[in-house]
Design a binder for these strands. Structure first.
Lengths: 252, 252
DNA sequence: CATGAGTGTATCCTATCGGAAATTGGAAGG
DNA sequence: CCTTCCAATTTCCGATAGGATACACTCATG
């Protein structure tokens, strides 16, 4: 392998790594491979159940099998791929409609809380960060391209993750991070284009407004309404099952 | 390496594998190593921040480095170990009191819902399974030994996991599975012995009673009370911070 | 047509090498 | 004589290449 380059000629990847992970000067090759793999699965929209040949993937990316395997193990934990012992790895199946409903139930349990806690955050960069993500989403409004969809979904993920991070509860953030890629892939295969930017941005604005004035109850409610709306929009495209009654309890 | 044995002489391990995983005839060596590692970290009570020497661990368990590394990557995702690139793996730090509080917050958000959903389960083996776990916990009551503590905590984990599984929501179950090992380790280092069996079994009984009569509201409430009690008991030993107000919403 | 042996392929594991980081020893300066 | 800084050594992580084993497929046979 050439001395300077790690993955492929890796020009595009090095740019991503430089932009996203400049702080961590120490990154192992398997980390790079993992990031590359996530991007690959999420944007390329590979067919579910596709066999992943470790050897050919290693040759294609000009690395050996070990970092590929380590990245695949992590991807399995994240739900991106599945593994059958002695039979290898496959691209994970896309969520069924029922499973997406389950996913949204979990988010509805957690995210109103994370929004409420985020309203107490002292991080002054939170609001500007959220607005930056919303600007990207506004920009992608009604653009049918795959590129725009990818940027749109990325901004959406980072919007929710920023709030989870601001909640200060690492377990909440961890639990939600797993859901993000699944939701991304479900919507990628459901429509694959930006079709709800107006509603989503409006609902995000309501959340940000509540966070700006540090109103925990309002933030919680706005987030709850947003998630219910997201689910309803998806089910409008897909028909039943609609969102089952969402159990929520009163502030004690 | 001898032909029949895989880990060490591995007599005890083979017994565990035969008891727990007989259904999966296909298991890779890294799976075995991972299970072994979880058991090792949770029962041996290794000091946090202890360096893990991959090479010596491989020699000690009579396997090579690759399955060790794969198991460590999975253990990192599960929060059992931490990894610093180019500096290796370490035993993960035990949760601080504040982090344990965060963990309990997440459980309180999720588990009342999982109990409510489990009450609708048609699985006839659920109640007997839960009662079996409770029997084990009763048996360990007020026994100070490390062996009893381990069995007690295992039964507690499996009790909650069985309910999560019965909820039918795989994302709920996944989110909770991460919390289990952290809670286990926190209590291992907090007291390390069975000191709340009476209360815990009583509270578990309340949950099972509600599940038996398929009362979703009662199951949710019983689980909520149980988790609050768990947190309160831990804080009684530890002093502040006590459990912050637990945000819960009304059933809509 | 069903069944079983034989061949090919890919996974999984092992053995080994390069290289980065921690450590120990020594020399220079105060 | 003690402290501080630098450098060589050692240790161990990360990566590579190759071999053993299990599975899938093909083809011959009852």
């Amino acid at each position: 392998m050439a001395k300077g380059s790690r993955l492929q000629q890796a020009a595009d990847f090095e740019a991503v790594a430089a932009a996203g992970g400049a702080l961590d000067s120490r990154r192992s090759l398997s980390d790079d491979v993992y990031d590359h793999m996530v991007e690959f699965v999420l944007t390329a929209g590979l067919a579910p159940d596709t066999h992943i040949n470790v050897d050919s993937l290693a040759r294609a990316w000009h690395v050996s099998q070990t970092p590929i395997r380590e990245a695949l193990v992590r991807a399995e934990e994240a739900g991106l791929v599945t593994r059958e012992p002695l039979r290898g790895f496959r691209i994970a199946p896309v969520l069924s409609s029922a499973e997406f409903s389950q996913l949204m139930h979990l988010r509805i349990l957690i995210e109103p809380y994370s929004a409420a806690e985020a309203s107490k955050s002292t991080d002054v960069t939170l609001i500007p960060t959220l607005e930056a993500h919303m600007a990207i989403m506004r920009q992608a409004r009604n653009k049918p391209g795959a590129q725009e969809f990818s940027a749109y979904m990325r901004a959406d993920r980072e919007f929710h993750d920023a709030i989870a991070a601001a909640s200060g509860n690492r377990f909440v953030r961890l639990a939600l991070s797993t859901t993000a890629v699944h939701a991304h892939r479900f919507r990628l295969f459901a429509s694959g284009r930006v079709d709800d930017a107006s509603e989503t941005v409006a609902e995000h604005s309501a959340v940000v407004d509540a966070l700006r004035v540090r109103n925990a109850d309002a933030a919680s409610t706005a987030m709850y309404r947003h998630l219910v709306s997201v689910a309803e929009r998806v089910y409008a495209d897909f028909g039943p099952p609609r969102l089952a009654p969402v159990p929520q309890r009163q502030m004690s």
